[in-house]
Design a protein around this nucleic acid. Structure first.
Lengths: 195, 195
DNA sequence: GTCTATAGGTTGATAGAC
DNA sequence: GTCTATCAACCTATAGAC
C-alpha cells in the first residue's frame, strides 16, 4: 500500500471511504483509529483531514449515502398498483439490495449510537422514509382486502426485522440459492399478512 | 458516587457489572473506558482489577451469564406436546424475557465482534442452543402436520429475527400493551408457518 | 480492597515544510 | 495534497502504600 508523495485528490477520497467502511464494519467505529484507515489507504493520518473534517463526519457520510442510495434505488423500481405484487417486489428488492452491501447495512444498524444527535436525526428520518414505503403497501392492501393485518405499524417493523435477519446468515454459494431464499421469505411474509 | 476507603467486596463486584452493562449498552464496549466504569461505581480504575482480570473478561461475563439465564429460564417453562401451543409459548417467552433485559440483549447482539475468538465461540454455542429449541418445535409441528414450512432452518432464523425486532421499538406505556404486542406477533408468527 | 502513581502506548487533530 | 512532527489527552493494566 506504499504511496509515492504527490497529488491524488480524485482517488484518495473514495479510497478513504472504502477503507473506513470495511474497517468500521469489521471492528466497529470506536475501535478503528484514523491511523488504521490511513494505513489501509497508504497515506499518513494527517492526509485524511484533506477529505473529512473529522472522524464523525466520515461515519456520517457513509451512512447517509447508503440510506440515500437505498431510497433512490427503491424509488427507481417499477411500482405496481396491486398490493400483493408490490409487497413481493419489496421483499425481493430489500433482500437483494441489502445482500449486495453487507458492510453498509451492518454499519447503518450498528453504529447509530456513535452518531452525533444531529447526524442521528438525519439518518433516522431516512430510515423512516424507507419504512413508510412498506407501510403504504400494507395499508393499501389492507384497505383493498388483500391483506388481513391487525396493526400495520407493527407489521411493517416485523416484516423489515424478519427480512434483515437474512443478512446475518446468508452467504453466496451456501445451501440455498438467492432465488430460493427470496421465495422462502416471500412465502413467510405473505402468509404473515394474509388471513 | 464518592466512596470512603475500605472493603466492600461483596457489593462492588455486582455494581461493577451493572455499571459496565449500562455503559456498554449505551455507548458501546470500545467507546467505554475502565475509568468511566469505575467513576460510575465510585471507585478508582485500579480497583476494578480486583474483580475482573481485564476489560474483555468483563464483557464476556455479562454476555455469558445473559445467555445462560435465557436458556435456563426457557428450560424452566412448562413444556407442552402440542407444537402450535409450544410455539405460542416460545413467542410469549421470548418477547417477555427480552423486553425485561434490554441492555443485556443489546450487548449480546452488538458486541459479538468485540469478543476474543474463544469467547465468541462460547457465546455462539449458547445462542445456537436457544435457536435449536425453536427449531425443534417447528420440526415437530411440521412432522405432525400442524405447520407448513418450506425450510425449518430459515423459518427458525426468520421467526427469531422478527421477534427481536420488538426490542427496537417497544416501550412500556406506549400505544399498545404488552399483551397486545404479544398477540400481534403471535398472529404473524403463527400465520407465517401455517398454510 | 482500595488508594495513588505511573508505565508504556494510543488517540484525534493540527502546524508547517515541501 | 501529502509529509513529518507534535500536542494534549486519553487508554489499559500494574505496583506498592495503607
Amino acid at each position: 500500500m506504499a504511496r509515492t508523495q504527490g497529488s491524488h485528490s480524485d482517488i484518495t477520497g473514495p479510497r478513504i471511504r472504502e477503507a473506513a467502511l470495511a474497517l468500521f464494519a469489521r471492528h466497529g467505529y470506536a475501535a478503528v483509529s484514523m491511523r488504521q484507515i490511513a494505513a489501509e489507504v497508504g497515506v499518513q493520518a494527517g492526509a485524511l483531514y484533506n477529505y473529512t473534517p473529522d472522524k464523525q463526519s466520515l461515519l456520517f457520510r457513509l451512512m447517509y449515502e447508503h440510506m440515500q442510495d437505498l431510497i433512490a434505488a427503491y424509488a427507481d423500481q417499477d411500482q405496481t398498483e396491486d398490493a400483493a405484487e408490490a409487497l413481493r417486489q419489496f421483499v425481493g428488492f430489500h433482500i437483494r439490495f441489502h445482500l449486495q452491501r453487507p458492510d453498509e447495512v451492518f454499519i447503518a444498524y450498528m453504529e447509530l449510537r456513535n452518531l452525533s444527535s444531529d447526524n442521528f436525526a438525519q439518518i433516522e428520518a431516512l430510515r423512516r422514509t424507507y419504512e413508510n414505503a412498506l407501510e403504504a403497501i400494507l395499508r393499501k392492501g389492507q384497505a383493498a382486502g388483500a391483506f388481513d393485518i391487525a396493526d400495520t405499524k407493527i407489521a411493517t417493523l416485523a416484516v423489515i426485522a424478519m427480512l434483515n435477519g437474512v443478512m446475518t446468515w446468508y452467504r453466496a454459494g451456501g445451501r440455498l440459492s438467492l432465488d430460493e431464499v427470496e421465495q422462502a421469505y416471500w412465502d413467510m411474509v405473505h402468509r404473515s399478512v394474509t388471513a
